[in-house]
């Protein structure tokens, strides 16, 4: 196990970690602002990956430009879902989180089965013009992964500025801290929730495009991404953007370093162990906040 292999894995891990971070951020935002746990978060990613794949392979799109299509499509879907379904479930009051969990679990099942029916279970990948490696010193950096990482980081930064500085960003934060009082301040909570979810799914749409140049798609690809997204929410704290970035990178690094040591398949066990550790070590961070609610 040479240092260079480990360093290579480290770099790889950081790069993929950026994408994990932004995927986790999408979940974290929805969860932080309105307590919506989207169990189908991974499946939405899968859908966006399929969209990017088909646009790239058969319509000659530049894979990164498909992000625009994805964001548009998923944004609209997110708006509809939030406005007509999730807002209704939330406004019902009692134990809405359970209903939302169940609904999105059903959605997850249905999407996996649907795409299996439509496109079959084979893994699909596409060659894009973003391939090849960049040489930095004596390290090899994969070009598409680097571009995706940079775009992901840009997205996170942009989101941070939006949340902290803009009018709507403030409204999002206010609504997440105290929904009723926010409404007393003329903030339309239902609209704010729609914005939050549109952003959440929009981020996922972007991520699907970011992954297409180097990650292959099949109907079940969303599961592991979703799991990592949940870990990011647990580690980073809900709605916490810098926390999500850091957590994503940590997960990516652990995965790639682990992969270098014991192979990619068994590296998944490291991720699982990380998850258990977080559950055991940091329960205060993810303990039920009784004040909320």
């Amino acid at each position: 196990m040479t240092v260079s292999i480990l360093t290579q894995a480290l770099i790889d891990g950081i790069l993929i970690g950026g994408v994990y971070a932004v995927i986790g951020l999408g979940l974290s935002l929805a969860y932080g602002v309105m307590g919506v746990v989207n169990w189908a978060h991974g499946e939405v990613l899968m859908v966006s990956m399929y969209i990017s794949y088909y646009l790239t392979k058969f319509a000659g799109f530049d894979p990164y430009l498909t992000a625009l299509v994805n964001i548009l499509v998923l944004g609209v879907v997110g708006f509809i879902l939030q406005k007509y379904i999730f807002n209704r479930l939330i406004n019902r009051g009692k134990a809405a989180w359970r209903d939302i969990l169940l609904f999105t679990a059903g959605m997850s099942m249905a999407l996996q089965a649907l795409f299996n029916l439509l496109f079959g279970a084979e893994v699909k990948s596409v060659e894009t013009r973003y391939s090849g490696m960049l040489e930095l010193g004596n390290m090899l950096v994969s070009v598409p992964k680097l571009i995706s990482f940079l775009l992901a980081a840009l997205c996170c930064a942009g989101l941070y500025v939006f949340i902290q500085k803009s009018e709507m960003g403030r409204a999002l934060r206010a609504t997440s801290q105290d929904r009723i009082t926010a409404q007393l301040m003329s903030i339309n909570a239902n609209l704010v929730y729609c914005v939050a979810f549109v952003i959440s799914l929009g981020i996922v749409g972007l991520s699907g495009a970011l992954l297409t140049p180097f990650y292959s798609v099949n109907p079940y690809v969303g599961v592991s991404f979703c799991f990592k997204a949940f870990i990011i929410v647990a580690m980073g704290g809900k709605g916490n953007i810098p926390g999500a970035m850091l957590s994503g990178v940590i997960i990516g690094v652990i995965e790639k370093l682990g992969g270098a040591m014991v192979g990619d398949n068994l590296a998944q066990i490291f991720i699982f162990v990380l998850f258990i550790l977080i559950l055991l070590v940091k329960p205060e961070g993810i303990l039920e906040k009784r004040v909320r609610g």
């Binding site: 934060r173 206010a174 801290q177 105290d178 009723i180 009082t181 926010a182 007393l184």
Partner: peptide
């Protein structure tokens, strides 16, 4: 002006 002030604590 709500009971208990209800400020947004993290702002």
């Amino acid at each position: 002006v709500p009971e208990g002030r209800k400020l947004f604590p993290e702002m």
